[in-house]
């Protein structure tokens, strides 16, 4: 489950390799033991040790296996490379029509009017605001839940709550979007007296639901794997449980927690279906959290169908894809950087 949720968020930048799994045909071959058995078929163990009479020398076999693994790894890299390549081929031509600056900072997104206007600032800010607002909900909820599960809950409660939270990660985003649309939106509209319940607030809430499992499960893992000895060391000095959590356990797991938070946010920023369904879809710079917005993924998904092939609009949508790609890339690089930077140096045990 844990791996899954990391993959989910990573697959926002590399959607193809995991979804299409070009690795499948290789996996059976990659089983190292079976493979070397295959090569040694019919040879007695004795001759293997001497290295004579074996079909191939161990060195050659090692190399073959090494290259096979390398090839498997290469497939993913290649696919990613191809996707990025096409993203650029299809996106860059828009910059013949608008300058990069006007594209990024233009306030008006009217791709179909005459003359068209390709300013993605409203979409870009839509993405940033929605993600920012959703992390206001998801970070405290996710991290506090993680602390509760790893430190406070008794094993039984933990064994019940943890799978439920991870099940949340397994919910298809369209289901979450649907929930936002038919349950949350009318509720917001009625009780907050809004024009529409499909707005930034609603989208942020739904995105928070989607990133909480990632944040919670990665953080919980980090907190849970803080060595028991550290905790005991703190308690033995007369610290309370709460002091131990705040002063020892959280600092010791901060890299894992930050990684979880950032992966959770990058999951939110790339999420398409939910924002398409509940964000309201207005390509305007929002003025309040209850304004409808149109984040970048939603624009691409909504407009791609109607944009004629190789039209300016089409190129512009791909260029939004490039921006989105770099945004999630930055998030993932930050996560990577943090998890390396705060890695414990030196073993605390012998």
């Amino acid at each position: 489950m844990k791996k899954r949720s990391i993959q989910n968020s990573i697959s926002k930048i590399i959607p193809m390799p995991l979804a299409f799994s070009p690795l499948w045909p290789f996996i059976p071959i990659c089983n190292l033991r079976d493979f070397s058995l295959l090569l040694n078929k019919g040879r007695s163990p004795n001759t293997q040790i001497q290295g004579e009479g074996s079909l191939l020398s161990y060195k050659t076999k090692d190399n073959i296996i090494k290259y096979l693994f390398f090839l498997c790894a290469l497939v993913s890299v290649l696919v990613l490379g191809l996707i990025v390549y096409f993203l650029f081929i299809e996106g860059v031509p828009i910059f013949k029509v608008v300058s990069f600056k006007d594209f990024l900072f233009g306030k008006y997104w009217y791709p179909t009017s005459d003359p068209p206007s390709f300013g993605i600032l409203p979409l870009f800010l839509g993405s940033i605001y929605v993600t920012g607002l959703s992390s206001v909900f998801s970070i405290p909820l996710g991290v506090l839940t993680a602390i509760y599960l790893a430190e406070i809950a008794n094993p039984k409660t933990r064994s019940i709550i943890k799978p439920i939270i991870e099940l949340l990660a397994a919910l298809p985003s369209v289901v979450i979007g649907f929930f936002g649309m038919v349950v949350v939106a009318p509720f917001l509209q009625k009780y907050l007296d809004l024009d529409t319940g499909l707005n930034m607030f609603n989208a942020a809430l739904m995105l928070a639901f989607m990133s909480i499992p990632t944040i919670c499960s990665i953080s919980e893992d980090a907190i849970y794997s803080v060595p028991r000895e550290l905790k005991e060391g703190s308690l033995a000095l007369g610290a309370t449980h709460l002091q131990t959590i705040i002063r020892v356990i959280l600092p010791a797991s901060i890299s894992g927690i930050s990684t979880g938070v950032i992966l959770g946010m990058s999951r939110a920023i790339g999420e398409t279906m939910v924002v398409l369904m509940v964000a309201g879809g207005a390509a305007m710079i929002p003025e309040s959290i209850f304004d409808p917005v149109r984040p970048m993924p939603a624009s691409i998904a909504a407009e791609m169908g109607e944009a004629p092939y190789h039209s300016e609009h089409y190129f512009a949508l791909f260029a939004i894809g490039i921006v989105l790609f770099f945004l999630t890339l930055i998030f993932n690089l930050i996560a990577d950087h943090i998890s390396h930077k705060y890695k414990q140096v030196g073993a605390s045990t012998l």
Partner: peptide, 8 residues
Amino acid sequence: FQKPNPFP
């Protein structure tokens, strides 16, 4: 403790 356990 038996094993050294300094805080990070």
